[in-house]
Nucleic acid binder design. Structure first.
Lengths: 346, 346
DNA sequence: GTGAACTCCGAAATCGTTTTCGTGCGTAAG
DNA sequence: CTTACGCACGAAAACGATTTCGGAGTTCAC
């Protein structure tokens, strides 16, 4: 292990005072350009970089932001999550902050993860996703007054910063497209009801029905777990109806995958006899049979943006100004089917 | 923000010396059980927990281990990676260590990520995956003498701790199964050649051929990127051969997914006319058409084990003793096809 | 009763920074 | 020539923990 050099040794080497060296390195005032250059050069040559522990102790900051992985039920939609993480890391890479992550095992212990993060590790800020309509994490963080930014808005507490990829427009545009194709009974396979995205998706769905003067039938919307198994069982339930839907809008690509499976079970051709649309542009979508029509989710960009918002917040920005709502775009492949044949109507 | 309490205030509150309180909290000797209890209770009541910055400065340790995400080409097989991360976090959760992650953007800057981690952040240990046959990361870490454990062995440098899910057995057992079904020309779609898993997979493949006294045909193995697109183009290449394979073994489920697509393009039924086997048990495998036969990859457990190995290493363990090789198991679904019909032989 | 051995606790040094507050010096104004 | 002032740098005090070492007080053997 190459041995480390401390700032006092560097100062001694330069014949300068420690304080001067410190100021030079941090580019604070009160030091001439000449010595500043001299210090920087020596630091480079001797491989000096300030020990974070010392700095953190003195400045009373951890230079750390925490991300907590939601409990693994549904795994927070794998690729989605990974992209988000990379975006966050990219955003952080130009700052002195480091990203620490913890995984919550269950919904019950999730809050403990947050507590450990802020009370023990003393992170400077927090990020998380899968916001819920009523979200105890938000309440906790606001109560402790710790800066945070969420992926997805919520109905909880005071205003807070977030990036939201608007499920309302997915719900609205997806079902509107089905309506345009002549469908009159459109199923909705939504994520669990406590999630904010579920609420928004259903709002969009109802708005589209209303615009088309179509009746709302509660039997046609089922909330299910956010994965393939959920899509499978949810679609089975839908297809077992006396008057089953002729098209299905899904709250996630994984759900759509399961739904297509369920459709195939009944002997019908998924995406053809019963069209399907998903959400979040899962990378495997193009390889499904038929390729899955879905809505975009610029997750990497969302991660980067979340960092910007968090930094702005810690910089004194007001939460109301730090809320992004992005509209997902329809990605047409082929599972959305086409014009409904006349015979199939009624 | 609820205000923090430092150890001196706690000591004052108790009428004890700071040193005594510290010893009580860290359960070091030289303090009676009675006062130890008293201190712990007060700490609990007043919500005291030691400031990591102070401790780290004094103990000259960062209590931090770093994980670096491989460059996004192929995204390190999403769900695989997430499970690994959760395993690592679970392993770490009982220790004072925190997990910090950084994402390498490209192969070129990957080493810089490592350097930042050890030279600037001063992590106590490092983890990474996707080991390569010749791996500069390993060289760097061994040179700097920083403790690390890898996911996957390598041909680089001195012995080091790792957990390896043995691709050799996947390669061997997968092709052996095809052989058993009567196939004589078996394609191998492998991950990029510089990866260790690629090398091992091919070793297993050749071993199975040899055992069956089948000739090795270099045309039948193609190395390709570790994703669906790679599988697609690789399989196309294989199928365009004058004497194409009648079955394809794949180095990853994502590759298998692309391969099935390519097979379908030619009008043949993937998994039936041309059987396919993948690796790593991707969660979407059961939802492919037909469901994908694959090899298991207990990634969560691997993550947990990696933590154990790292801690053991930092505790003075010898690297040679800290190497796990796990055998993946065949997960039979249906894409492996069945008995080859006699007519297809030659 | 005395010395030794053993417990338990406290004073102070230390880890590597940043930051405040002087201090000396040179320069410009009067 | 004196005074005032700005500029560049240095001394020292934090930040919050751990650890070493020494010193009371107690117990025990002789």
């Amino acid at each position: 292990m190459k041995q480390r050099i401390s700032i006092v040794e560097l100062a001694k080497h330069l014949g300068l005072a420690v304080s001067t060296v410190s100021k030079a390195i941090n580019d604070r005032g009160d030091v001439s350009d000449a010595t500043k250059r001299r210090v920087l050069e020596a630091a480079e040559k001797l491989g000096f970089s300030p020990d974070p522990a010392g700095r953190r102790l003195r400045t009373q900051t951890s230079e750390t932001i925490g991300f907590v992985l939601s409990p693994p039920q549904s795994h927070f939609a794998h690729p989605f999550f990974l992209d988000l993480l990379m975006g966050i890391d990219q955003g952080l890479s130009e700052t002195p902050f480091q990203l620490i992550i913890v995984a919550a095992r269950t919904l019950e212990t999730e809050l403990d993860s947050f507590r450990r993060l802020v009370e023990r590790q003393r992170v400077d800020g927090v990020m998380f996703g899968r916001t819920r309509r009523d979200d105890p994490r938000i309440r906790y963080l606001q109560e402790r007054n710790v800066p945070f930014v969420a992926l997805g808005r919520s109905e909880t507490g005071k205003p807070f910063p977030f990036v939201d990829i608007d499920r309302t427009v997915a719900g609205r545009n997806g079902t509107a497209r089905f309506v345009g194709f002549g469908h009159r009974r459109i199923g909705l396979l939504s994520t669990p009801g406590y999630l904010m995205i579920s609420r928004l998706l259903q709002e969009g769905y109802r708005a589209a029905l209303k615009a088309a003067k179509l009746p709302f039938d509660a039997d046609l919307v089922v909330e299910t777990s956010n994965d393939e198994a959920g899509g499978l069982s949810g679609a089975r339930q839908l297809l077992a109806l006396g008057n089953p839907p002729t098209a299905i809008m899904c709250g996630h690509d994984l759900i759509a995958t399961g739904a297509m499976q369920a459709i195939a079970e009944t002997g019908r051709r998924p995406g053809v006899d019963i069209p399907v649309i998903g959400c979040d542009n899962h990378p495997l979508g193009p390889y499904l049979n038929p390729p899955l029509t879905t809505f975009s989710a610029p997750t990497l960009e969302a991660g980067r943006r979340m960092v910007e918002l968090l930094l702005a917040l810690m910089d004194g920005g007001s939460p109301e100004q730090l809320q992004d709502i992005w509209s997902p775009e329809l990605i047409l492949r082929s599972s959305h089917g086409g014009q409904l044949v006349a015979a199939a109507e009624v």
